[in-house]
Amino acid sequence: MIVTENLDIAYDQMVIVKQLNIEIPSHKITALVGANGSGKSTILKTMARLLKPKSGHVLLDGKAIHQLRTKEVAKQLAILPQNPTAPEGMTVTDLVTYGRFPHQRGFGSLTKQDKEVIEWAIEATGMKEFAHRPVDQLSGGQRQRAWIAMALAQETPILFLDEPTTFLDMAHQLEVLNLLEELHEKERRTIVMVVHDLNHASRYAHHMIAIKKGTVVKAGTPMEVMQPHIIEEVFGIQCDIIRDPRTGLPLCLPYALSRSKKEQVHHIG
């Protein structure tokens, strides 16, 4: 389990996140939602020890993650940051192979198990036909899946993904989300993802955390978080919440900007 304790995160003097206390439940899918610039990536990166907090702790199974050996953390937790870039000319297979880095020593020859995991990750993300193509020559969606395959090859019980469905068309979005759901169901992996589509969050996540200006507005099940007044506070839009006829889960149907937002827009216009 991952817990944050009174986390303050700042870029130089600019404090982005104040006194954050959240819990990431184990063996569940958690969705971080919030407007652009609300601090989702900052929080995710700090929980994955890519950023050091100004004060407070992130605890991974009770131990302060920033004090653990980074390579040991990498065996527990894989993170796909927003907009990663690969060196020119690197093929998909090569990229996915680096996912084995935390498990390799020194010069890094691959064991049979390494090779099996790499092959599995490429297949699971549907990248087999592109396995030997350079990453920089793929479409946005294919590239995203190649990076997900790299994170999968790390074979960690915990998986963080920052906007894994951005750049993807609808079919590929569902493909990625179904894959994450399958990883959760079959292997009980703990997954934390930043998603923009609230209905995807509702459909795939068991736990949602709604962030506004670096603080938690509401955390809980999709049923608890997907309420008109919460959505209005977090995103500044007015919406109806209806039940998905197929799954019974809440769906958000936005119909207007909230009043304060409207005034802002009028000022700009």
């Binding site: 680096y98 935390p102 790390q154």
Partner: peptide, 10 residues
């Protein structure tokens, strides 16, 4: 791969 991915890989 840059700081973020490299740290994530350990």
């Amino acid at each position: 791969f840059g700081k973020n991915v490299a740290t994530g890989l350990g």
